[in-house]
């Protein structure tokens, strides 16, 4: 089966001082039709830039290389007409803060109808289409919401409106950039359930960007982990939790608090996450890695197949065999 989205060796640079600086050094991932893939990383890892590169909404000073293909068509070389059709029909993106993407002096109906107008859907037809979209995101009084202004609605409601707008063009790929980070936990659960249901019912491919491995596991088939502008691990979402392949993933899993059990002290990673342009030669994670050896600093580890997934760590097999990458389960701690 052809991949719906394929990213190969993506590199994104911005001018910084006198030279170009990497914000993404090497990202490779693929999404099959109808598949949900979580893209997990801390701040500066390049996950949002990766998603923005897919719909080509990076700032104009960005220099992008590598390959992005949608259904076999190269995205980076699309001409403007083709690109517009791609954004209108094939792909949609939702963001962390819906309120900055909505015009405060226009109603929700106005906002939803704008895209429809391009397809010649106006007037009563647009209103009834908008109503149907809102009921698909489980808003049970669509008429009131349609006539509301953004400030009259809660954050969870606005994010539902953004999702409604995203599915209006019946896209085959949805890019969701931390769509629930700004929401309360109970609202987060509801919005996630809506995204999950829509993508299953409609067979939409989903790239779900988050800093939270649990969230990725909850709604994604596979999880891709990024560190300092590189993909470092890719596996089934459950496998990431049970048997992480990369020391960074293993470190993230044990360093966060668990709701089900208190730990005397968390087993934290030293230091802080770095951006791609701050990365040293060799493995970018080596300075924070408990298992780093001099050879790790010599060259960038290849992103290679292992145990049904992929990993960029030269010691992965060895560490796995020695049981050094196993997450400490709650019962054991």
């Amino acid at each position: 089966m052809t991949d719906l989205l394929r990213i190969e060796g993506l590199r994104i640079q911005f001018p910084g001082g006198s030279q170009m600086r990497d914000v993404v050094s090497e990202v490779s991932l693929a999404i099959a039709p109808g598949e949900a893939v979580g893209l997990v990383g801390e701040s500066g890892s390049g996950k949002s830039m990766t998603a923005r590169a897919v719909i080509r909404v990076l700032p104009p000073t960005a220099r992008v290389s590598g390959e992005i293909t949608f259904d076999g068509a190269p995205v980076l070389s699309m001409a403007s007409k083709q690109l517009r059709a791609f954004r209108q029909k094939d792909v949609a993106m939702i963001f962390q803060d819906p309120s900055v993407h909505l015009n405060p002096i226009r109603t929700i109906l106005d906002f939803l109808a704008e895209g429809m107008r391009l397809r010649g859907v106006t007037g009563d037809a647009a209103r009834s289409r908008a109503k149907s979209l809102l009921s698909q995101v489980l808003i049970d009084d669509p008429d009131r919401v349609l006539d509301s202004y953004p400030h009259q609605l809660s954050g969870g409601m606005l994010q539902r409106v953004m999702i409604a707008s995203a599915i209006d063009g019946e896209p085959r790929l949805l890019l969701a950039d931390e769509p629930t980070t700004a929401l309360d936990v109970t609202t987060q659960a509801e919005v996630l359930a809506i995204i999950d249901r829509l993508r299953r019912e409609r067979g939409v491919g989903l790239l779900f960007i988050t800093h939270d491995l649990e969230l990725a596991a909850a709604i994604c088939d596979r999880t891709v982990v990024m560190y300092a502008g590189r993909t470092v691990e890719e596996q089934g979402s459950m496998a990431v939790h049970r048997a992480p392949l990369h020391p960074y993933t293993a470190g993230l899993l044990v360093s966060r608090p668990h709701v089900s059990q208190k730990q005397a002290r968390l087993q934290v990673l030293p230091g802080r996450p770095i951006a791609a342009y701050e990365a040293p030669g060799g493995c970018s994670f080596a300075p924070r890695c408990a298992h780093a050896q001099p050879a790790c600093e010599a060259e960038v580890p290849a992103f290679r197949a292992l145990a049904g997934g992929h990993v960029a760590c030269r010691r992965a097999e060895e560490l796995r065999t020695a049981g050094l990458l196993k997450e400490v389960t709650h019962a054991e701690s």
């Binding site: 489980l138 808003i139 049970d140 009084d141 969870g156 409601m157 936990v185 109970t186 987060q188 659960a189 509801e190 919005v191 996630l192 359930a193 809506i194 999950d196 249901r197 939270d212 649990e214 969230l215 596991a217 909850a218 709604i219 459950m238 939790h241 668990h258 709701v259 089900s260």
Partner: peptide, 16 residues
Amino acid sequence: ESVPDVGWKPTATTQV
């Protein structure tokens, strides 16, 4: 129940 943990699945309700 809304706290994501391994094996957790989100559930949605309609909301006014």
